[in-house]
Write a protein that binds this DNA or RNA. Structure first.
Lengths: 200, 200
DNA sequence: AAATAAAAACCGACCGGTTGGTATGCTTTG
DNA sequence: CAAAGCATACCAACCGGTCGGTTTTTATTT
């Protein structure tokens, strides 16, 4: 096997081990030695691939963001009506629940660090703004084409993003507390149809 | 001044200092010495009042929960219709935004610790379940009295709680990103009326 | 009221263990 | 051989927590 391959595999194993450690014990709670042991490499290898523990964390965040970008790119099918497009967006959330199963506490680590580190903050906020813009666009289009009632698209998008974020957080804290995939589905249905009873 | 008064004031000052430190630097990021310095007391005083750093954290959580219970107690006026009652609940959220201004990162600390510590988890989850039950009750009543359309009250309550939690988190990360008080108001309006355009 | 005891409140030096990070050297590959 | 990739030993700093001692308040006795 070439040294490049071996090197990249080592790096990958460190990332994977760190993901597990951070998810289970948190960022401050896990030491570099612990990550190395789990990855089956030495401390020297660690600091050969990453300048610092913080840099590793950022790399982990970047990796996650890359995955997320892919998912967003797939979701580019503006053919359907706005309600259908919004329903389809829920599937993306379900992807989050599925993929990040057991590693959702990592989100808390990201968000916590984001509140203190400028670089991490920008990277962490990007998806929020991204999804906000995406949703606001869909809603705005839906209003002009008549499938949605007139309202402020930004506010509506904010509601949807907030709901999603809230569910991700709760599922991180209490995975068994509810079927969050189904809750997200039902939530979007509710949002579309409204709570108040209509008069005939 | 009596020693009791002095003692309680010292304890209070430690709590206040800790709140500031944890909000700014996080739980692991702040040392006991730092809290003591900010509070103007010695380490001896600290460990006279609190068994450990963790115990101080729990005390801080309890303090917050007490405030929250008061707010919930005030909100006990089931006289109005369900939509009105739900609108009134939003005011409670606004209270959170107002009171916890600048200390919202503390929520992230609470939630993060909750993912690892059983005791903190229970205390942290309690308000979630509390509000869920409260909202579900209002909605259920609204359905039976005809002011709300038939739906699953639990799902609807989950949506509202999730929206609130999501907004609190986002306001913690990006306080200047939006007028979250107004966003919460608009969100509830939207939830009540629905997004989809009605046919005449 | 003075003296004394006892308890509460507080101080700050100190310790043991941990941790992120480094310096140096060995192996393998090209 | 030169460089990349990796291992081992080690360190300086930090941090939660302890401990013996000191001051201040309260209770008790004389």
């Amino acid at each position: 096997m070439s040294t490049q391959q071996r090197s990249e595999e080592t790096r990958s194993r460190i990332l994977q081990a760190a993901l597990g450690c951070f998810s289970e014990r948190g960022y401050d709670g896990t030491g570099v030695a612990e990550i190395c042991q789990r990855a089956g490499v030495s401390k020297g290898a660690f600091y050969y691939h990453f300048a610092s523990k913080q840099a590793l964390f950022v790399a982990l965040l970047d990796q996650w963001l890359a995955v997320l970008d892919d998912q967003v790119a797939v979701q580019r099918a503006p053919s359907a009506t706005a309600p259908q497009a919004l329903q389809a967006m829920v599937a993306l959330l379900q992807q989050v629940f599925r993929d990040a199963s057991g590693r959702l506490p990592m989100f808390l680590e990201f968000w916590r660090q984001a509140a203190r580190d400028e670089t991490i903050w920008q990277a962490t906020m990007a998806p929020f703004q991204h999804y906000h813009a995406l949703l606001a666009g869909i809603i705005r289009q839906g209003i002009t084409e008549g499938s949605l009632r007139p309202c402020d698209p930004d506010n509506a998008a904010r509601v949807i993003v907030s709901m999603a974020v809230g569910m991700v957080l709760q599922s991180a804290l209490d995975p068994a507390g509810s079927d969050w995939q189904q809750a997200a589905q039902a939530g979007m249905d509710l949002l579309l149809d409204g709570l108040v009873r209509r008069e005939p």
